[in-house]
Design a protein around this nucleic acid. Structure first.
Lengths: 319, 319
DNA sequence: CTGAAAGCGCTAACAG
DNA sequence: CTGTTAGCGCTTTCAG
């Protein structure tokens, strides 16, 4: 009826009626039922955002980017967490799709067959984010982690380091860390350098793990001259360990992390890292969905590869 | 029809039919439409979670707690971000309520009149979290920030510090930081100590801001012997500043933060802080909603006040 | 155990 | 400009 029209600012309604309706709806504390609305109109202003985790600093920033652009549109993000587990991704995706969202933003290019099938058949724009090394269902925005690993390796080799260790997460399910590792070792090999040591962890406080792993590696392989970490948080832990134990940085060992988290800005010396463009990725992904929704398109087929900036900081240069 | 019954495991269906339906639904990649389902059944397995921010380490952990318990139930969290702005809270709440969720978990006790009215009339369980200093709409789970400030002040005074400064966020909209500040100054006053200096910031990298504010305060009031920060991140920045500048901690100045973030575990010396029970708050809040939903109740009227634990660390004791 | 029928609260299209 | 009508795709109830 008319009420619906005024509440949605659609169609022609006289000023008088509009005011009467608005007043009544306010007085009664009326909140429209979007469920019914969505069912009738076949339109839902929700964007499904599916990410592995919320607790490691990287995805909250992606979310910030997404929110920033969606706030300018009628769309709303709804997030689901997979804990890096494909079976959870499948379930979360299924749940989300059953609400018929306007689009999906999902981390990574690796999905189970069932997930992939759902994405392909959803009939809405899909943006896979973070990673560009692979084949997307529809659109993709991210960086090449293989290239990121490679470039870091080249920078380290160019600085003259020779005895290099890798410290990171156990990677069976973190494909992006794995790709960085692969790119890294590959480039080192090309430079004629073999990795001198490596250490992996899972779970626990990253800062603390960084300390522990660093200690382990430096005790096991004392002639190490560079430590490359799979993320900034463990790198920061490693840096603190070195400082506490009188290990000269970067004189005796150099360090580098990955992500470019804000946390590092306040540290001294400043850690070398590579910016993962997290917020920008979120923004671009949201923009694709917003554009499709506005235009009524069910896919965009865009491919945006961002370039991570290497930040030398104070820890990637011979003292 | 029958299909609906098997997909929901309800009612009696013969094994044969069940299998036939399951096979067909899988083959066709059928994803049920929850919108229609929700409209028909008047039941929605969504829990609205409304928080101010996702980027400061505290709310992600609350979310972790919420997710942990909701994962064991049919309920799903849907989060909305307010950026500490009441008008955004209002809008987000309105949007969320229009999806008729099974419950609301919302940060803080301070809401606009309109928001409060919506919460009161929603007819679903509401849990206000983080803070217990005030009057909840329905249930509340959190800590008393006023008391947290007070207890920290007492611990500092008991340790013999006399020239105390407060460093924190600008607080017009962060009611919890404000309450801690009030409790803190109140208790100091009772101990006959007047605050020696204070400094506020807004925005930017917390770690970096912590450094800057610490420098400002120590230069302006050189005889300061204790720095109390409104959160751990700026406290960590302050600690790093002291270490870099040869200021003995806790010999020359003591430091304390607030939140008990995991980040501190890896630092050395270990910062004094007070655990805000973030994950536990999330868990308890989710449990209340889950319980109500299961029992079909539309409110719980529970009040859970957690006790923050003071962690002395290495920075709250005369050297 | 299975089918048929009546809505859920809205939107969209059409008449007045 | 405003009222009426027919669904949206399910769940629920009631008969077979």
């Amino acid at each position: 009826m008319t009420v619906s029209r005024v509440l949605r600012n659609r169609g022609d309604v006289s000023q008088a009626t509009r005011e009467r309706v608005l007043a009544a709806s306010k007085r009664l504390g009326y909140v429209p039922n979007k469920i019914a609305g969505a069912l009738a109109s076949q339109r839902v202003n929700l964007v499904a955002v599916i990410i592995p985790s919320m607790s490691n600093m990287v995805f909250p920033e992606v979310m910030t980017g997404i929110s920033e652009v969606l706030e300018e549109s009628p769309l709303q993000p709804v997030v689901g967490i997979t804990h890096y587990r494909p079976e959870r991704e499948e379930r979360v995706l299924y749940e989300m799709l059953s609400w018929r969202p306007s689009g999906v933003i999902i981390a990574g290019l690796e999905h189970s067959d069932a997930s992939r099938a759902m994405l392909e058949n959803a009939g809405i724009p899909i943006v896979e984010i973070m990673d560009t090394d692979g084949t997307p269902v529809d659109s993709v925005v991210g960086i090449s982690h293989r290239r990121a690993g490679k470039e870091m390796a080249n920078a380290i080799a160019a600085a003259g380091y020779k005895r290099i260790a890798f410290l990171g997460t156990k990677m069976p399910l973190d494909h992006r860390a794995r790709k960085r590792f692969e790119g890294f070792t590959g480039a080192l090999a090309k430079a004629g350098i073999e990795m001198a040591d490596h250490e992996f962890y899972s779970g626990g406080s990253a800062l603390l793990k960084g300390r522990e792993m660093t200690e382990t590696v430096l005790k096991r392989t004392p002639d190490i001259d560079f430590l490359y970490y799979s993320n900034d948080m463990i790198a920061a832990g490693g840096l603190l360990y070195c400082l506490d134990n009188g290990i000269a940085v970067p004189g005796q060992v150099g360090l580098a992390g990955f992500n470019g988290i804000e946390l590092l800005d306040g540290m001294n010396p400043k850690l070398a890292t590579m910016d993962a463009c997290r917020r920008e990725i979120g923004r671009k992904a949201a923009e694709i969905i917003a554009r499709c929704t506005e235009a009524g398109l069910d896919h965009a087929d865009e491919r945006i590869e961002l370039t991570p900036r290497l930040s030398i900081g104070d820890t990637l240069q011979r003292g």
